[in-house]
Amino acid sequence: MSPSRKRRVKKTAVRRAGFHRNGRRKAAGLLFLLPGFAGIAVFYLIPFGDVVRRSFVQASGGRFCGADNYRTVFGNTAFQLAAKNTARFVLVCLPLLLLFSLLLALLVNGLGNKLKTVCKSAFLLPMAIPAASVVLLWRLMFDLHGFVNGLLALAGIAPVDWMNTGAAFAVLVFSYIWKNLGYTIVLWLAGLASVPESVYEAAQIDGAGRAACFFKITLPLMKPMIFTIVVLSLLNSFKVFREAYLVSGNYPQEDIYLLQHLFNNWFLDLSVDKMAAGSVLLALVIGGFVWILQRSWEEEG
């Protein structure tokens, strides 16, 4: 055997051994992933597949009906109102939450370690309060004879029926921000902590001011964290339904009638067809939003 042939054989053997090692590592990784994936598949993916199927069939008889359910949903005035309210809620809440929480996170970040820990705990407190207690608080605060109207009366302002007028939307936004602010601040703080101090020091030596440091260093370096925070805040915005539902029931003031109210009522009515089509549409919108967000991040990166 020539030396070159020998070398080739040896190289192939080494490659094969490497491939074998890589393959075993991959297989082990897959095995570790499998239980988690199986859980997701059983409890989310397969049921969602069934939801997609049901969105194309009639509720009774299960006959294929094409896009009829989607047409029905799009033509449904309750769906239009709920979708409009949900979109409005997300568009108002998300920027407000991100802005307030970032400002507060920057303030807290400048505090000493002890004070920072106390602030973090205080901000997280609303998350620890059970929904039932939050609802009680809502009622105490925003009832026609509640605390807020009491304060307004002291100031000589006429009482507001918070939950039965357009003010209900403001109450809902306030509740969402109050509940999620602390959690988002903690996320921001984690992001801020990941930016190396040495980068700021180098920039300051080069004459960069606070604003320049923030826009040129902090924000760019926290991009991955911003993506996570936006997605988490978006998903959390759907959880506000629980409080709205517990306070105002199935049919709240029309400004806080959200998609979840509609889905809940459709289920009571056994309108599985409409519910499935609506769910698929909602999943597409959320998925699309996350995808666009991810793409824009990647492109900028």
């Binding site: 309750a78 049919y251 009522n265 459709w266 309108s271």
Partner: peptide, 16 residues
Amino acid sequence: DAVGAIVQKVRLYVSE
């Protein structure tokens, strides 16, 4: 207020 709330909510209910 009472009539407004009933009408709004029943309309919503029926439109579902």
